[in-house]
Amino acid sequence: MNAIPILFEDGEALIIDKPAGLPIERPRAGGACLEDRAHELRLGFQRSPVPVHRLDTDTSGCLLLARNPKALKRFSAAFEARAVEKVYLGVVAGVLADAEGTIELALSKISSAEHGWRMIPARKGKPSLTHWRKLDERGGLTLVEFRPETGRTHQIRVHAASGLGAALFGDPVYGAARNGMRTMLHARMLSIAREGKPPVAATSPLPADFAALGFALPDSVA
């Protein structure tokens, strides 16, 4: 089992490069999750670090962990206050006419016995805002940079499908599942300012499965 890469470390926080396919919480059906790897992430501390936010199981990249209760409270408040800079990369199934834009679609949760739960655009839903720009096109697919201002469940997935009109490649809920392919979403960068201290910040490299589709990051992407 490969070690989980550490992108940032200090006395308050870790940012790990979460592998695609690793759930943060234990699935209802059982199986491995991040908690099983917590001992690897103590790095000399008595407490295991705790996730401050969530990434979907398929989503790879920057995940912030707090190393003590005070840090957890402070970082959680920063997420609530939208004081966290987040950048995601996604591969969408389709070619986009525009080079960049902003998607503002309120989201609401629905569920049914047949299909389970999902998020949908809804006039009375929770306000949700995502900025995006096109980075590259290959074979009918587009590499897109997403900068969400809000942090709703499945926000980028729904905004891609309903706002761009092009679902994330491999998304089995809002697009079309692909054999052996995950939902192609990657948490590229995360940054939180701290008073009197350097920010907690990290950048995750482009995943191998993005590169396997022929994509590379342009020089304009930090």
Results as ranks from 00 to 15, higher is better:
1 M>H: 00
1 M>C: 07
1 M>G: 12
2 N>A: 13
6 I>Q: 04
7 L>I: 11
7 L>D: 05
11 G>W: 07
13 A>K: 01
14 L>F: 06
16 I>L: 08
17 D>V: 14
25 E>H: 14
25 E>I: 14
27 P>T: 12
30 G>H: 09
31 G>A: 06
46 Q>C: 08
47 R>Y: 00
51 P>E: 04
55 L>R: 03
57 T>H: 04
59 T>W: 02
60 S>T: 08
60 S>A: 11
62 C>M: 04
63 L>F: 02
67 R>H: 07
67 R>T: 07
70 K>Q: 12
70 K>H: 09
71 A>I: 12
71 A>Y: 01
71 A>V: 08
71 A>H: 02
74 R>N: 11
74 R>I: 15
76 S>W: 09
77 A>G: 07
78 A>Q: 15
79 F>W: 14
96 L>I: 15
102 T>A: 12
102 T>L: 10
109 K>D: 04
114 E>K: 13
119 M>W: 05
120 I>Y: 03
120 I>Q: 09
125 G>Y: 05
126 K>Q: 10
128 S>N: 09
131 H>G: 08
132 W>I: 12
137 E>G: 09
139 G>N: 13
145 E>N: 03
148 P>C: 12
150 T>L: 11
150 T>A: 11
153 T>E: 07
154 H>R: 07
155 Q>M: 10
158 V>H: 03
158 V>R: 01
161 A>E: 04
167 A>S: 12
169 F>W: 14
170 G>Y: 01
177 A>L: 04
177 A>M: 05
177 A>P: 09
179 N>D: 11
180 G>N: 01
181 M>E: 14
196 G>F: 09
199 P>H: 07
203 T>V: 15
204 S>F: 01
216 A>W: 06
216 A>H: 11
219 D>T: 15
220 S>R: 15
